[in-house]
């Protein structure tokens, strides 16, 4: 039997029998979901609105507390571990939010440098500056290193949110509609950057999307329907 750490490296996400209901909700949003994400995989999770995609993503990202079932993320059991485990998972995961929610007062670089504060050994300002410049160049917004959010378009801000999720080279990337506000060319560029990151680091990605333009770039496409995984292709 493989040691737990080796298992966590090879299978960064294991979801077992997860169910979830919202308070006062009429029914279960997730119903006994099992899911496994392997090392280096780029997986797309899709389905109709209300199918439970974002709920599952936020449970894996430890943004929401587990009700039933078990989730293991990067070797950390989320069920019954409380806030400390949740915060540890949050720090280790690169989460791309649908709404970028950038601080109006912070420049792009300051936003990215702030994110590096989540690591155990944050880089120096100079090192972070180099890292940020390179990442932003890859995402096609290198000229906005010192811009404020109000000086950028919605699509550019979304790419900053992607950079914020990647700056710490996380072993797991979770994306909630990361290409929703991007045109086709920009979407291809963003997904390309994520894929290159996976190839370089062996990280994995789970992306919730309605955008069928990126299905072809995924290793697997999972489909959720009424809280159940109905296909894995």
């Amino acid at each position: 039997m493989a040691p737990a750490s080796a298992l966590a490296r090879e299978v960064p996400v294991r979801v077992r029998g997860v169910s979830y209901s919202y308070e006062n909700g009429p029914k279960r949003v997730l119903d006994n979901v099992d899911l496994t994400l392997r090392r280096g995989e780029f997986v797309v999770l899709t389905g109709h609105s209300g199918a439970g995609k974002t709920t599952l993503l936020t449970l894996i990202g430890a943004i929401r507390s587990l009700q039933d079932g078990a989730i293991n993320v990067l070797g950390l059991e989320l069920g019954g571990r409380g806030t400390a485990a949740q915060e540890e998972v949050r720090r280790k995961v690169g989460f791309i939010f649908q709404d970028h929610n950038l601080f109006a007062a912070l420049t792009v670089f300051r936003t990215l440098w702030l994110a590096t504060g989540l690591t155990e050994e944050p880089p120096s300002r100079e090192a972070a500056l180099e890292e940020a410049r390179e990442l932003l160049e890859q995402l096609g917004i290198g000229q906005h290193l010192h811009s404020l959010p109000r000086q950028m378009s919605t699509g550019q801000k979304q790419r900053v949110a992607v950079a914020r999720a990647l700056i710490n080279a996380p072993q797991l990337i979770l994306g909630d509609e990361p290409t929703a506000s991007l045109d086709h060319q920009s979407s291809q560029m963003v997904i390309g950057v994520i894929r290159r990151h996976l190839a370089a680091t062996g990280a994995s990605a789970l992306v919730v999307t309605h955008d069928d333009r990126i299905f072809g770039m995924a290793d697997r496409v999972l489909r959720l329907q009424d809280g159940r995984l109905v296909s894995d292709t």
């Binding site: 990202g61 943004i63 949050r90 929610n101 702030l114 504060g117 989540l118």
Partner: peptide
């Protein structure tokens, strides 16, 4: 006013 932005930082793991 910054509820969404601050919540995002919490979601990222800031304590």
């Amino acid at each position: 006013d910054l509820k969404k932005e601050l919540s995002t930082l919490r979601a990222m793991g800031f304590g």
